[in-house]
Amino acid sequence: MSALVFDKVRVSFGHGARKFTAVHDVSLRVPAGRSVGLVGESGSGKSTLARAAVGLCEPRSGSIALNGTELVNARGRALALRRRVQMVFQDPSSCLDPRMSVGASLVEAIRAAERRDRRPGTVAGRSAQIAGLLESVQLPSAKAAEYPGALSGGQRQRVAIARALAAEPAFILADEITSALDVSVQGSVMNLLKELQAERGFGLLFISHNLAAVHYLCDDVAVLRTGRLVEAGATADVLHTPKQDYTRELLAAVPRIGEPLFA
């Protein structure tokens, strides 16, 4: 069974007196085909952990492995394997290059995948692929000619997901991808992720501060606090019968519709 495995990962920034450790020896397993929620408040290190997996920052110690292959400082074949881990970001206003059409953004991703797999691509093949990708994120293929400025926030996040899919990922790390969206759009992005996962079988690390979203989408949950893993387990267990005080505190703080905050 393949999996993305974080083992005692530690990430810190700066040196000496200014050293700041964002992630403290966190171990976490994202099995293929499952979705794992990573929850925590700001500064808990949840984004940093994901960024380390795709090489956007470098752990000081520990290992991140995909099917047993080390991804930290990957070169050659390991690097090609790391490209099977893709990330989708929070901010829909900066996730796409404003000067590139949707089609151009997707072509870039398709070509990168072709280079990785050392297979030639054709113009016709790529445009067919673009149509397919857009279809899979439920966007009309005419959107390929549009620029991000003409798209809504939800549509941009869909394109960003399509771009990640172009790399035929084994794992997708979704970093607060619904947080900046209106609630009416959040649901459709979550539905999309769920459908895609069922269809393509990638493993999903869903990073969010929104416990309800994690509850809806994820099989397992890990709770982070100031860079340390507090609790992990099956979603139903962690979110309905939490073992740790911090998780309980976190759950208690979440306002619920119709439940008066103050008696």
Partner: peptide, 21 residues
């Protein structure tokens, strides 16, 4: 206005002046 959700902003403790600044 949508949720300007959680971003990894530096915590206040880090922004405080070190005594030997």
């Amino acid at each position: 206005m949508t949720a300007t959700a959680i971003s990894p902003t530096p915590t206040t403790t880090r922004a405080q002046a070190a005594p030997n600044a």
